[in-house]
Design a protein around this nucleic acid. Sequence first.
DNA 1: CTGTTAGCGCTTTCAA
DNA 2: TTGAAAGCGCTAACAG
Lengths: 334, 334
Amino acid sequence: MTVPTIDDVAAAAGVSKATVSRVISGTFTHIRPETRRRVEEAIAALNYRPSAVARSLTSHRTNTVGMLVSDVANPFYGDVIHGVEDEGIAAGYNVLLANTNYDLDRGMALIRSLIDRRADGVLIMSSSGSDAWLRELAQAGMPAVVLDWAGRKSEQVSRIEVDFRPGIAEAAAHLLELGHKRFGHIAGPLTLRTSRDRRDAFLDALAEGGVARDRALVATGPLTIEGGREAWRLLREEARTPTALFCANDLMAIGALSAARSEGLRVPGDLSIIGLDDIWLAPQFDPPLTTVALPRYEIGKLAMRLLLKLLAGAAPERQVVVTSLVIRKSTGAP
Amino acid sequence: MTVPTIDDVAAAAGVSKATVSRVISGTFTHIRPETRRRVEEAIAALNYRPSAVARSLTSHRTNTVGMLVSDVANPFYGDVIHGVEDEGIAAGYNVLLANTNYDLDRGMALIRSLIDRRADGVLIMSSSGSDAWLRELAQAGMPAVVLDWAGRKSEQVSRIEVDFRPGIAEAAAHLLELGHKRFGHIAGPLTLRTSRDRRDAFLDALAEGGVARDRALVATGPLTIEGGREAWRLLREEARTPTALFCANDLMAIGALSAARSEGLRVPGDLSIIGLDDIWLAPQFDPPLTTVALPRYEIGKLAMRLLLKLLAGAAPERQVVVTSLVIRKSTGAP
DNA sequence: CTGTTAGCGCTTTCAA
DNA sequence: TTGAAAGCGCTAACAG
């Protein structure tokens, strides 16, 4: 039971393979309806499927884009992937998802593999990547879109940047408006630029609301639930224990929340908490978590759209995506 | 800057393209070292990368396998994917990850796309799939491995089944050993076969330990955190409120736990809880959750290994994977 | 050990 | 409107 080829279809329909080719590629413009019908019948009868491999060889296009993420299991990527896929499917592209596993060498291997397969372009959504990747892509003349890293600017690369300031400013304003006076921030490791940025954004926003920078307590820890717990214990020992807390991510917020609660504090009664990320757990938690959300799905769609523009020959561009506050039940009046 | 082809390399190295082909495919056996060196230099100089699409056209193999999952963001798949990738990379295969999004039509489209690209085989790890998928694959002569569904048996399809009984039996034994007398089970929707299987496995195991089936309370709800909360409230109203609870999945366990705790119960002091799945949250939760775990990474490796065997011409087979209990801090003496 | 020669399955001029 | 023929970039006999 050998797989049928275009020649089989041509023979079955009594036409040349050029005609079959025209039918399958949708260039109906100059084909007699009757001929087209015969070809389509033959295709159906043989259950013929044109070989994408052969088509790509001649057309020099694969209608495929690669998408690199650091870890597909990371809940952050779920929505991004959906966005990319939806936009990609609509444009007739296939998306090859690949996992770098936070490993630069693995990422390079994947990029090489995408080059070998002659993917039309790449979406690099991994949190970190190396300039070597971009160099390799540039050499192969393969356009790319990168999410959120500094990286050197290069040709054929569009960029998406996420601006957390607006969402964090809303968070601070929300807390201020509720009447809080004692603020705390639980930051991620300050060696990370993103940790510093989020902290600064929060302190700046408070300052704008009249709270001096040194009036807000800051503790740091790893970006995990346990990290949040530990950081809360640190804050707890300070004289002016906060009544309002902004955490660098939802995991830390959940950790702080559970630690505070096990000390008998009520949330939001005694302590208001805001996270960042809006992971799937956030709305399901008890209480549902108020958090700064990124438009993940939109980021995915945008990334794909930028890549399509590049493929269409447009010049690289840079787009900024903003965040916003989602108010749920973990915040209230002090 | 046009992409170099094998002819360019051949010209640069002053050999025929057949020789270049031999070098790149690693058939060094019959090549003079000096010749090989010249070719390799030319390859490096031109930054030549053989076109996988051209190679596939002639070799009739793509060294690519597709992997269908219902939702990459589902934490369940993270480890499975890693297992598949690790095993695949070791064997020189690329893994194309595709998301069905719990949509049968989407899945069918993806399968067609894999057929068009002439993938060498497919791993179907989505929780549900249609027989139409398998028919399509069979027609295309494409081998597949499916995870955990009944599906009609067909040629060229190997199966992996997960047996929850061993792990659930361990869970019941653990609870019994701790001295519990009043048991409860929080089941998923009983319309799902897996829900019924898990419930039966638990009740059977208890029965073996001397607890009559009707002595254990069963409540059901959706397989979510909120579902767990609601189900707990139902059990709570029964006369013989359980001191030991086995839940159909970790999410429900977490829901039940948070509901019980907000009623003032201590876990594990007043109530022991066991989940199933061992999601990433389980060990991080407070208290870390005792749960029935599946060897997800191993499942991934096994799936890939079964597919490789199929690709090597072996007959389809069926393998059963067993579960086991991971004891953490949510269980204790009553 | 290396080169020649056919294709692989399709697209794309160029003619008819 | 359709067909013939020449590739796309590579592999795989078969010679030499």
